[in-house]
Design a binder for these strands. Structure first.
Lengths: 227, 227
DNA sequence: CCATCGCTGGTATGTGGTATACCAGAGTCT
DNA sequence: AGACTCTGGTATACCACATACCAGCGATGG
């Protein structure tokens, strides 16, 4: 039977914080590079949706603007910010560096079952019918790359990748259906998995890096919708 | 890939509310009838323990005083309130009414495996060595009675019982080791379980009610520490 | 083209919650 | 008896948030 016992109360629960988190999560889960996507937010609409007044929403939005996720235009609205083509190119390069280092660490740190699980991501697409299921394949593609970073078990790598993930993910989703990218990418993925299974750090790093930089080349050549 | 989506934010999280809940839980989990238990609370100590200022603590304590759980004595301190012997007697009678009705409902609503689980509560004590493990038995005793009420699946019965549970539990814990109460109670419990297994509502109700009122008789005869 | 209206983020004000400082009374110690 | 300590009680300041109002811009209609 217990004696009197209380623990410190968590006081970190301001509305502004909660709204900031909620908005940030909603934005990062969007595909902001999708054609025709609505990038505009409205304070009053958000107030309705979140069931709070505008004051803490404005504070959260100001913070998101400071972080570069949105742009507040007086009397017009708040806009989610797409990165420019040049910025995306640099993000892809950063991702290539992060993911190739992660691949090295996977060969050293991941369990056999974790590496085996990578194959199951693509088990549905082994019969070559990638184009027929391009949306599912797009999701699988994104999941594959994210898994490699997470399997590295390097917290700072994961956090750094998280900061640019929404942009990389959006570009991947938008470009995967162009030309033969999907077909080629599944071949690349299988080769990458083979290097991981063999625990060949150099080969894994090289294939992952080249695969990512291949995306950079494709973006450089074809993307016209980012100013 | 998601579109922009946010849900209403929960705004019900004032410090006062959280502190009230925390204090109430801490108090209801105490055995306030235990000999020598410290029943005094101190605003400044609570402020240290909860890591908040005194203002919301005072508000929470005011509410707990209104509910009768504590008494605030100016310049002396805040005291958790034990019920008087007369009040305890009435609570036992109320409990007898609630639990006997719950027993009827158990015979009608509980599954066989739920009723069978009641036996496992006492499986450790079947060799008659109850006094040697009186603390564990005390816990098992309390758990048994609470289970019957919960198995009734009658929400209002459960809530009404919850309101007096800390007092009934405290008295049960304090009296179980007196005279031959433990030995007699395990016999009563087995008989009660048998009536439940047979789905005999009348017999279950009668045995449960008599068992509870037997506690009332014992309290009437022996308890001197409640004014 | 001009006037009006609607819509937007921006600003001001009021309210409630909380932290902190100070107060008054009771009890203890010298 | 006086000084000190401890307590809940009270006052004040600050902050977060809700709400009302403002100013400017763009769209629409005459």
């Amino acid at each position: 039977m217990g004696e009197f016992k209380v623990d410190p109360i968590d006081t970190n629960f301001s509305l502004k914080e909660r709204i900031y988190s909620s908005l940030k999560q909603a934005i990062t889960q969007m595909n902001i590079y999708e054609e025709g996507v609505n990038l505009r937010l409205d304070e009053r609409q958000l107030s309705d949706q979140l069931a709070t007044s505008r004051t803490p929403i404005r504070e959260a939005l100001a913070r998101l603007e400071q972080e570069g996720l949105v742009r507040i235009v007086p009397r017009k609205g708040v806009y989610i910010v797409r990165k420019t083509k040049a910025e995306i190119m640099e993000m892809i390069i950063l991702w290539a560096a992060l993911e190739s280092m992660a691949a090295r660490l996977v060969t050293q740190r991941a369990t056999d079952s974790e590496i085996a699980a990578l194959r199951t991501i693509f088990s549905t697409f082994q019969d070559g019918q990638v184009q027929a299921h391009i949306d599912e394949y797009s999701d699988a593609n994104i999941r594959f790359h994210q898994s490699i970073v997470e399997m590295s078990r390097c917290k700072l790598l994961v956090e750094t990748a998280d900061n640019i993930f929404m942009h990389i993910r959006g570009i991947r989703a938008r470009t995967i259906s162009e030309s033969d990218r999907a077909t080629q990418s599944i071949i690349d993925h299988i080769h990458i998995i083979e290097t991981l299974e063999k625990r060949d750090a150099d080969a894994a790093e090289r294939l992952v890096r080249d695969h990512a930089l291949n995306l950079a080349e494709h973006v450089a050549k074809t993307v016209t919708y980012l100013e």
